[in-house]
Write a protein that binds this DNA or RNA. Structure first.
Length: 423
RNA sequence: CGGAGUGUGGCGCAGUUGGUAGCGCGCGCCGUUCGGGACGGCGAGGUCCCCGGUUCGAGUCCGGGCACUCCGACCA
């Protein structure tokens, strides 16, 4: 990608209203653009990052048998009526009227914009699942979620429209469901490890769905809006809603460690929903004994765009973003500094070509700008490796990691090998 | 939905006792520069968030809206 063609350009100043780090840096770097409160365009750079995040999620979902598909975002009122979630929370504890965007078309028919897909998956299951031999099933998709948040905030961390991966699994028995639930928990841990996060798994209340606890995946971050408690010795963790105690006390689980209170960003959650949905929506299968039984059900979400914001919150400095290599919009930022009166000994075009041929994604700053400006922008955008060719580098290339101040001269061959090793 | 703050060229801001809008950045052209957001010259660019009121006259005063941000409530 030629930087001279990249849309849009970076900015020196953050928007007046920007308060949170991710808001300032993602907007300045040209990753996202705000349409209104809680509604963002993922610009080319931002979309690249989200696509890489999604690919990591996709690989781990596929590894546990998840099948990717795509469900609609426009839903009829009727399907929400089946579980009672169309209504208000006053007369129905499950009602989701407050967060659902509901509206009528010109003929007066009522619709909602999707904020989750349990009902839609249930409808698919009852149409297509007949026998215990058809189960278990795990399907997922990446799609936009619409939620009428009372207050959108924190840049891209809490939007009214955002991207999420949601996985749904259906099983014949509770035991099978819980076994798969643990597999998903493992898969999520792999995903957030691959994403480079320092995270904790916290328990939260099961609400009305289940007497079992549900789990949240929380990235430790100062700017996070969740407060969690976790053990500094074992894996125990609880969110503020259910934690009874004080920070600094003995861990209630291992009795050895100390409980730590921390701010965090919730990037994923998993819910063993049981048979609540299948009973409401009459989703059953014929078991080996010939009897109709309700399907056991669970849902699992990861907010991809929230991961984007969280990545910036936990990895940046005063100059800009520091992407982890696995989610960076490009692998390498190639910067050419024009020679004054002589030609460069290394042709940046040739370097760009050879890097690309080696499977490395390159943003090539081919613009006629001052060195200072190019470096400042490179720091802002945050690509993990910066390669400079100038008259000073002669036939070599200057290598610098975004998270380090050290520069060194390498041959192109060496530089390619090093980039390869990072992945 | 309560509380607070902010709305002025693309972006960030200034604008006095009310007198018809200015700075920096960015943008266009020319020239000089060329390893940490270079310099000079010329130039383009404005419904001062919207509606109403007061006034000879409103960016400025008054009333009503709208939008965005922050705190709170809320957050399957």
């Amino acid at each position: 990608m030629l930087q001279s063609k990249l849309f849009p350009k970076t900015r020196k100043e953050p928007p007046r209203e920007a308060e949170s780090i991710n808001h300032k840096l993602l907007v300045r770097g040209g990753f996202i653009d705000q349409l209104m409160a809680g509604s963002w365009t993922l610009l080319p750079l931002g979309w690249r990052v989200v696509s890489r995040i999604n690919q990591i999620i996709r690989e781990e979902m596929n590894a546990i048998g998840g099948q990717e598909m795509l469900m609609p975002l426009l839903h009829p009122r009727s399907i929400w009526g089946e579980t009672g979630r169309w209504g208000s929370t006053k007369d129905n504890p499950l009602g989701a009227k407050e967060i659902m965007y509901q509206f009528k078309d010109m003929r007066g028919r009522e619709y909602a914009l999707s904020f989750t897909h349990e009902e839609i998956v249930m409808d698919l299951l009852r149409k297509h699942i007949r026998s215990y031999q058809d189960l278990p099933v795990a399907v997922y998709h990446f799609s936009t979620k619409f939620r009428n948040e009372p207050r959108a905030r924190s840049g891209i961390l809490r939007g009214r429209e955002f991207m999420m991966k949601d996985l749904y699994s259906a099983h014949t028995t509770e035991a099978d469901l819980m076994e798969y639930y643990d597999q998903v928990k493992e898969a999520y841990s792999k995903i957030f490890t691959r994403l480079g996060f320092d995270f904790r798994i916290t328990e939260s209340g099961g609400g009305v769905f289940t007497d079992k606890t549900t789990h949240e995946f929380q990235v430790l971050a100062e700017g996070g809006e969740d407060t969690i408690f976790y053990c500094d010795a074992c894996g125990w963790g609880e969110n503020r809603e259910i934690f009874e105690g004080k920070a600094g006390e003995r861990c209630p689980s291992c009795k050895k460690g100390k409980t730590i209170r921390a701010q965090a960003i919730e990037v994923g959650n998993i819910f063993p929903l049981g048979t609540w949905y299948s009973e409401k929506m009459n989703v059953s299968y014929t078991d080996a004994d010939g009897r109709q039984k309700p399907v056991w059900f669970a849902s699992y979400g990861i907010g991809s765009t929230r991961v984007l914001g969280a990545s910036v919150e936990v990895s940046h400095d005063e100059s800009g973003i520091i992407w982890y290599p696995q989610v960076a919009p490009f692998d390498v930022h190639l910067i050419e500094l024009k020679a004054q009166n002589s030609k460069l000994k290394t042709d940046p075009k040739e370097i760009y070509k050879r890097l690309s041929e080696a499977g490395i994604e390159v943003l090539w700053d081919d613009r006629d700008k001052s060195a200072g400006e190019k470096f400042a922008e490179a720091d802002l955008i945050g690509i993990p490796v910066r390669l400079v060719v100038s008259k000073e580098t002669a036939e070599n290339i200057e290598w610098k990691r975004r998270n380090s101040k050290k520069t060194e001269l390498l041959s192109l061959r060496q530089a390619i090998d090093r980039v390869k090793k990072m992945h």
